[in-house]
């Protein structure tokens, strides 16, 4: 059974004339790592909001179609019920801090306090999140004294503590340096392995090619492709949608190194392997 089912999703913001999401339909399996790619204004962030119930509960506007998480319609549910199932992390680590907490430990507790979780249970969940995100040493620091990367890890830990089945991340590494990005991707891949469904809008395609199980390509709100990274990044028309495929795909294209299924390799290892096959 699918964890998430999106059926003919359409959405337009109240002050806009055109659709930001135009007839999207796809399914996501439990524990999958889905990458959402597309140029700016493709609708990536809006889709992230729709998957977490912010559209249509927080952002009003014209809404059509369905988003179902565990067969429960997001539109018909309370936003707090949706966010307990699907957590959201977005690009600006600074804005995700509540401003009312003076330590990382308390910051992570914020969502749990709102959900009425008992203190002992809260402590267990916070300790687990701190350990998973490897930020135990930061627990007594003020969130605003942290670097962008550390803040982003606190934001993810705050979402993790809520024990969601799905985590939606909207360009979570856009403010981070390469090392910070690597750390975030590694942690997220670990979460996907543990059975949490990950949906991530991201511009760092090399990283998505390495970690994602499927890629959803959007362009001007329309769904262009939904398939394996190899399948999507091997498309001949991908440049037309403002997407420069990962560097290994470009090298493979230049060297005409396609596999038997007709796809280019998307990682360095894949490229090496394909090169050796080509040699033989």
């Amino acid at each position: 059974m699918s964890k998430i089912r999106v059926e003919g999703l359409k959405y337009r913001y109240p002050d806009m004339d055109s659709l930001v999401l135009d007839d999207l339909s796809f399914e996501v399996e439990k524990g999958a790592f889905i990458g959402i790619v597309g140029e700016n204004t493709a609708g990536k962030s809006t889709l992230c909001y729709a998957l977490t119930g912010l559209v249509p509960h927080f952002f009003k506007g014209a809404y059509g179609g369905n988003v179902l998480i565990d067969n429960i319609d997001v539109k018909q549910s309370e936003i707090s019920d949706v966010t307990s199932k699907a957590g959201l992390v977005f690009d600006q680590p600074f804005s995700q801090m509540t401003g009312s907490k003076t330590t990382v430990y308390e910051e992570i507790a914020f969502g749990l306090e709102n959900s009425g979780v008992e203190r002992e249970e809260m402590r267990i969940r916070i300790d687990n999140s701190l350990r998973l995100m490897d930020i135990e040493h930061l627990q007594n620091k003020n969130p605003y004294d942290l670097s962008g990367g550390q803040m982003q890890r606190v934001a993810i830990a705050s979402v993790l503590a809520m024990k969601p089945d799905v985590i939606v991340l909207d360009e979570p590494t856009s403010q981070l340096d390469p090392q910070g990005s690597d750390e975030v991707f590694q942690v997220i891949a670990k979460l996907a392995e543990s059975g949490i469904t990950i949906i991530m809008a991201e511009h760092k395609l090399e990283k998505l090619a390495e970690y994602a199980s499927k890629i959803l390509l959007l362009h001007k709100g329309k769904q262009i492709a939904y398939g394996s990274p190899k399948e999507v990044f091997s498309r001949d028309d991908i440049l037309e949608y403002g997407i420069a495929p990962p560097v290994y795909v470009r090298i493979a294209k230049a060297l005409k190194l396609k596999n038997k299924a007709g796809f280019y390799p998307i990682t360095l290892d894949g490229l090496k392997q394909q090169w050796n096959v080509g040699d033989e």
């Binding site: 909001y49 977490t52 912010l54 927080f58 309370e78 936003i79 707090s80 966010t83 307990s84 957590g87 959201l88 977005f90 600006q92 804005s95 995700q96 801090m97 509540t98 401003g99 430990y105 308390e106 507790a109 914020f110 969502g111 749990l112 306090e113 709102n114 959900s115 009425g116 979780v117 008992e118 203190r119 809260m122 402590r123 916070i126 934001a155 705050s158 979402v159 809520m162």
Partner: peptide
């Protein structure tokens, strides 16, 4: 953005709130 962040962390939840401190 902060309003969104609060919303996704259950700030609008109508249930009883608890406190860590």
């Amino acid at each position: 953005e902060r309003a969104i962040a609060l919303e996704v962390r259950g700030f609008s939840s109508k249930g009883k709130k608890t406190f860590i401190s």
